[in-house]
């Protein structure tokens, strides 16, 4: 199964009953999988007329209490930002998969990680965050999509799966969990018709003085809680490492190979791989004696979060390419060797 299909299968297993999407490469396998499987599993599939329509259909389905999802790739995700902001403002749970490609503009269809800022900083207007999960394998594309639905419901917040074109299109074995019927949390706020209760309103509009500030304070409290509880990361040979590589997604796979090669040569090198990009796993950066090397398929976006996490307590180097180029294992090894033999170690 491909990574794109694994995201779709993960969503269906997580009880997603509504999907709307629009064609864009390199995520089309996801939409096609949904077209093939969503109706069979009793859900709704819609090929929307536009990215904006797709995300707003998701808004509607989520407002009506369904687990709902859309997917796209970078330029399409830019179009969806309006809807994502409204979903955050109306505190709706929804999952958005971004199978990243090169930018800016129409860019190309090669894998990239250039949408890190957009995903982690609130890509649309207003003070909000999305949960951002970064898989690095087909299995994780599936697992983290399941988790995304759980977290989205738990925090009534949009959750983004940040994949990329390489991860989306490659094939690996997948262990599918058949957990039977998913127990969805109660959603007393959802629009179901006001039988036996007061009318519900789903909105992000607060005109009365002070009301919008109250909403924002509530959101900020929620974001604080998410930052406390939901930081996730994986460590690989990190404990005794003198140089810690920091990479996520596809880039982390290549970094991992480089670590293996370097370890075989006796170099104390490890990998810190964020699974959540927002909240960024600041708690993982507890060893200031190391030297850190951030590696991205972009030009220093996650780098800023690493610098913020370390707050100047350790040196941070950077290696990044984007627009079709991916830092290779050899490039990483050369860079690590330079750092390793530098005066700071």
């Amino acid at each position: 199964m491909t990574g794109n299909e694994a995201i779709a299968e993960g969503a269906i297993q997580a009880g997603c009953t509504f999907y709307a999407g629009y064609p864009i490469t390199p995520q089309n396998e996801l939409t096609a999988y949904m077209a093939n499987h969503m109706q069979k599993s009793g859900g709704v599939f819609i090929q929307a007329e536009a990215e904006l329509a797709a995300i707003n259909m998701v808004f509607g389905a989520a407002a009506a209490g369904a687990r709902a999802m859309t997917s796209s790739s970078s330029p399409g995700i830019s179009l969806k930002q309006e809807g994502i902001s409204y979903i955050a403002g109306a505190e709706l749970p929804a999952v958005i998969a971004n199978v990243m490609r090169g930018g800016p503009g129409l860019g190309n269809i090669a894998p990239a990680q250039s949408d890190y800022f957009q995903a982690t900083r609130s890509g649309g207007h207003g003070d909000y965050h999305c949960l951002v999960l970064a898989p690095a394998s087909v299995q994780e594309s599936y697992d983290l999509t399941c988790l995304a639905f759980t977290l989205a419901d738990k925090y009534r917040s949009p959750a983004i799966i940040l994949s990329d074109g390489l991860l989306g299109q490659m094939m690996e074995p997948l262990l599918v969990r058949k957990e039977g019927k998913i127990e969805l949390p109660a959603k007393p706020w959802a629009l179901t018709g006001c039988t036996g209760r007061q009318a519900n309103v789903v909105k992000s509009f607060y005109l009365k003085e002070g009301d919008l500030e109250k909403l924002n304070l509530k959101l900020q409290k929620k974001y604080k809680e998410i930052q406390q509880k939901e930081q996730r990361w994986e460590e690989f040979f990190l404990t005794d490492a003198k140089v810690a590589l920091v990479a996520y997604g596809t880039m982390a796979r290549i970094a991992r190979s480089a670590v293996k090669v370097l370890r075989e040569k006796g170099k104390k090198v490890g990998l810190l791989r964020p699974l959540t990009l927002w909240p960024f796993p600041k708690k993982a950066f507890t060893m200031p004696k190391k030297k850190y090397l951030v590696i991205e398929m972009s030009y220093g976006q996650m780098l800023e979060d690493v610098q913020l996490a370390l707050c100047g307590k350790a040196g941070v180097e950077f290696l990044g390419r984007s627009g079709g180029g991916i830092p290779s294992e050899q490039e990483i090894i050369v860079k690590v060797n330079k750092i390793y033999h530098g005066k700071n170690i």
Partner: peptide, 28 residues
């Protein structure tokens, strides 16, 4: 109005309506 209502971004009401109606066809 005293019944369930949703907002929609400017122009997107029929996309929101589509999402709602498709998952809750029994509603009006």
């Amino acid at each position: 109005w005293d019944f369930d209502c949703s907002e929609a971004a400017h122009g997107r009401a029929l996309a929101v309506a589509t999402g709602i109606k498709r998952v809750r066809p029994q509603n009006i």
